[in-house]
């Protein structure tokens, strides 16, 4: 500690104060993600070509790409994508919008909360995939059961995220609204909902990822077309190239969704610090 005591000799050395305030501030380095991805694929390609990864464990990335090209050329890609995207869209929109609505009601009314919070807690841990046969009986083997499965899977996490977000809205802002005699509707629309938006959107990220997982599950039964059906068929034949082509499509879907939500967040939440 002697170097901290003021010296009168004038020979004390001057040093820069060490910087220790770095980190903990998310910054955007999007290209790193792309780099990691390219690195992994190149590694797999090299490994399988040179033989230190057995072709039984991992297909050649370039073969996967070729399969993908064939799928595209045959027009089947669009056939699979269009049905899957419709299922995903209908199911997720149903589940998420119902989830937000129920979550807001739970957040606003204590009777609804008392009635529905235990119910959501009971529904949340049920693996929705296990309920697929039940949904087939209820809604038919066609699209109905698939919509229901995806909707149900997105519903519960959205509810939980939404009412948590509503609970976290700054009470003093609501007080302010009341003190200016804003109507109940105005307070909900102009204070509660925008205030809950960050929480709702981050909940939506999770819900939509779950929706993609459930899409594959939903296409296990009674689906001719669909990314999930395509993957499951390839899996049962141990056709690794097609399996990986399908999985890649799902991953791209996930990335696109997450990027879309990120875009919405930047648009809608630019008011945050």
């Amino acid at each position: 500690m002697s170097d901290l005591t003021p010296t009168t000799t004038g020979t004390a050395q001057a040093r820069q104060v060490a910087f220790r305030g770095g980190g903990f501030a998310p910054a955007s380095h999007r290209w790193i993600g792309v780099l990691v991805f390219i690195l992994l694929v190149t590694l797999a390609e090299l490994g399988t070509r040179q033989g230190w990864i057995s072709p039984l464990t991992l297909p050649l990335p370039s073969d996967v790409l070729k399969t993908f090209g064939e799928l595209y050329a045959s027009g089947l890609l669009w056939a699979h994508m269009s049905v899957s995207l419709t299922r995903l869209f209908v199911g997720a929109v149903l589940g998420a919008s119902l989830g937000v609505a129920v979550g807001v009601l739970i957040g606003l009314f204590s009777y609804v909360r008392a009635g529905l919070v235990p119910l959501t807690a009971a529904l949340f841990p049920i693996p929705k995939i296990a309920l697929l046969p039940l949904f087939v009986i209820w809604f038919g083997i066609d699209e109905g059961s698939k919509y229901a499965l995806i909707a149900f899977g997105t519903f519960t996490p959205t509810v939980v995220a939404t009412y948590g977000a509503v609970d976290n809205v700054d009470r003093s802002l609501i007080r302010m609204g009341q003190s200016f005699n804003l109507s109940w509707m105005s307070i909900v629309r102009k204070i509660v909902l925008p205030g809950a938006m960050p929480g709702i959107l981050s909940g939506l990220r999770i819900s939509l990822a779950i929706a993609i997982i459930l899409l594959v599950a939903a296409e296990m039964l009674g689906a001719e077309y669909g990314i999930g059906a395509y993957i499951l068929e390839a899996g049962s034949l141990y056709d690794l190239e097609r399996l990986f082509a399908g999985v890649t499509i799902l991953s791209l879907l996930g990335v696109t969704m997450s990027a879309t939500i990120g875009l919405i967040e930047r648009r809608l939440l630019n008011w945050r610090q």
């Binding site: 003093s172 102009k190 204070i191 925008p194 205030g195 008011w271």
Partner: peptide, 8 residues
């Protein structure tokens, strides 16, 4: 605490 809506 001012009670301004941060998004407006």
């Amino acid at each position: 605490d001012f009670a301004l809506l941060p998004w407006r």
